[in-house]
Amino acid sequence: MFRFIIHNLSPLKHVPFFALWFDAAAMIWNMLFSPEITHTIEEIEHEVSAWRGVSTSLHKFGGVQFNYGGKELGHIHGHGIVDVLFSRRIKTSLIREERAEDHHSFKRSGWVSYYIRSAADRDGALYLLSLAYQKSAGCTTRVPDTPVPLSAGGHA
């Protein structure tokens, strides 16, 4: 149902407060019926917010938003969609490597989406966020195939 609404009724996000309520409802639903997704989101939030210079806030359409240097790296919605911003070139590469999907709403942008369905998706989400973090933090080295260990104040 959440996927249907996100893909087909996206104009609803412009209805005042609807998106926040919808995301909170999705989060509550997952807490009750898919706690694995909730725990995975919490683990990712815990991990990413520990990276040096990263702060968290509430995303305007609901969910946790990760910021670095005053700019958004990405966000995780309560229903388990991770949206991360890259350049169009990197986005094309990530989609080709099947590490991410086209963004659920903004197709003609650098945004990609990644779906958390179980605890196994944790590393994939962290990979994307760590890649975005490295780009924002000014790291020019090639990102390895495995997630970069950036926890607890680490730096790429």
């Binding site: 407060f17 309520w21 909170a24 509550i28 509430l58 946790v64």
Partner: peptide, 17 residues
Amino acid sequence: SPLLLGFMFVGVLIGHY
């Protein structure tokens, strides 16, 4: 009740951040 529950949780999220 779904409206109250959802928005109260939004408030908790705002408070969390």
